[in-house]
Protein backbone atom coordinates (compact mmCIF):
# COMPACT_ATOMS: atom_id res chain seq x y z
CA UNK A 1 0.00 0.00 0.00
CA UNK A 2 1.15 3.49 -0.77
CA UNK A 3 1.95 6.07 1.87
CA UNK A 4 2.64 9.66 0.89
CA UNK A 5 4.70 11.73 3.32
CA UNK A 6 4.54 15.50 2.85
CA UNK A 7 7.34 17.39 4.59
CA UNK A 8 7.13 21.17 5.05
CA UNK A 9 9.22 23.69 6.95
CA UNK A 10 7.44 24.63 10.16
CA UNK A 11 5.65 27.94 10.35
CA UNK A 12 8.11 30.53 11.57
CA UNK A 13 11.10 28.85 9.89
CA UNK A 14 12.38 31.08 7.09
CA UNK A 15 11.72 29.53 3.69
CA UNK A 16 14.03 31.34 1.26
CA UNK A 17 13.12 28.93 -1.58
CA UNK A 18 9.44 29.78 -1.17
CA UNK A 19 10.32 33.47 -1.20
CA UNK A 20 12.40 33.06 -4.38
CA UNK A 21 9.58 31.16 -6.10
CA UNK A 22 7.08 33.86 -5.11
CA UNK A 23 9.40 36.48 -6.55
CA UNK A 24 9.81 34.53 -9.82
CA UNK A 25 6.04 34.11 -10.14
CA UNK A 26 5.65 37.87 -9.78
CA UNK A 27 8.29 38.38 -12.48
CA UNK A 28 6.29 36.08 -14.78
CA UNK A 29 3.24 38.27 -14.33
CA UNK A 30 1.28 36.10 -11.90
CA UNK A 31 -0.15 38.70 -9.58
CA UNK A 32 -1.83 38.12 -6.25
CA UNK A 33 0.51 35.37 -4.98
CA UNK A 34 0.61 36.30 -1.31
CA UNK A 35 2.90 33.58 0.00
CA UNK A 36 4.72 30.46 -1.24
CA UNK A 37 6.02 27.62 0.91
CA UNK A 38 8.20 24.89 -0.68
CA UNK A 39 8.46 21.38 0.73
CA UNK A 40 8.93 17.82 -0.41
CA UNK A 41 6.76 14.79 -1.06
CA UNK A 42 8.08 11.28 -0.42
CA UNK A 43 6.10 8.30 -1.70
CA UNK A 44 6.56 4.96 0.05
CA UNK A 45 5.42 1.63 -1.37
CA UNK A 46 4.79 -0.53 1.70
CA UNK A 47 4.18 -4.28 2.01
CA UNK A 48 1.80 -3.57 4.89
CA UNK A 49 -1.90 -3.97 3.92
CA UNK A 50 -3.54 -2.53 7.05
CA UNK A 51 -4.04 1.24 6.56
CA UNK A 52 -3.65 2.05 10.26
CA UNK A 53 -0.41 0.11 10.64
CA UNK A 54 0.92 1.49 7.33
CA UNK A 55 0.25 5.05 8.53
CA UNK A 56 1.89 4.40 11.90
CA UNK A 57 4.97 2.90 10.18
CA UNK A 58 5.28 5.84 7.78
CA UNK A 59 4.97 8.29 10.66
CA UNK A 60 7.76 6.51 12.51
CA UNK A 61 9.94 6.72 9.35
CA UNK A 62 9.15 10.42 9.06
CA UNK A 63 10.11 11.09 12.68
CA UNK A 64 13.37 9.12 12.43
CA UNK A 65 14.59 10.15 8.98
CA UNK A 66 12.27 11.70 6.41
CA UNK A 67 11.66 14.90 8.37
CA UNK A 68 13.91 16.83 10.74
CA UNK A 69 11.35 17.77 13.36
CA UNK A 70 13.56 20.61 14.63
CA UNK A 71 12.65 22.54 11.48
CA UNK A 72 10.04 20.51 9.61
CA UNK A 73 6.53 19.19 10.12
CA UNK A 74 5.07 16.26 8.20
CA UNK A 75 1.78 14.61 7.37
CA UNK A 76 1.14 11.10 6.13
CA UNK A 77 -1.66 9.99 3.79
CA UNK A 78 -2.27 6.31 3.02
CA UNK A 79 -4.13 4.94 -0.02
CA UNK A 80 -4.35 1.87 -2.22
Amino acid sequence: MKATVTVMLKNGVLDPQGKAIAHALGTLGFSGVQDVRAGKVIELELAETDPGRAKAAAEEMARKLLANTVIESFRVAVDG
Binding site: V13, L14, P16, Q17, A20, V70, I71
Partner: peptide, 16 residues
Amino acid sequence: TEAGILPGALLRNASL
Protein backbone atom coordinates in the same frame (compact mmCIF):
# COMPACT_ATOMS: atom_id res chain seq x y z
CA THR B 1 22.91 18.23 14.41
CA GLU B 2 21.18 15.58 12.29
CA ALA B 3 22.51 12.90 14.65
CA GLY B 4 21.14 14.82 17.64
CA ILE B 5 24.60 15.25 19.19
CA LEU B 6 24.28 19.06 18.92
CA PRO B 7 20.96 20.96 18.96
CA GLY B 8 19.39 22.98 16.15
CA ALA B 9 19.68 22.65 12.39
CA LEU B 10 21.43 24.29 9.44
CA LEU B 11 19.02 25.81 6.93
CA ARG B 12 19.61 27.03 3.39
CA ASN B 13 21.56 30.32 3.43
CA ALA B 14 19.10 33.21 3.68
CA SER B 15 20.41 34.60 0.35
CA LEU B 16 19.92 31.18 -1.31
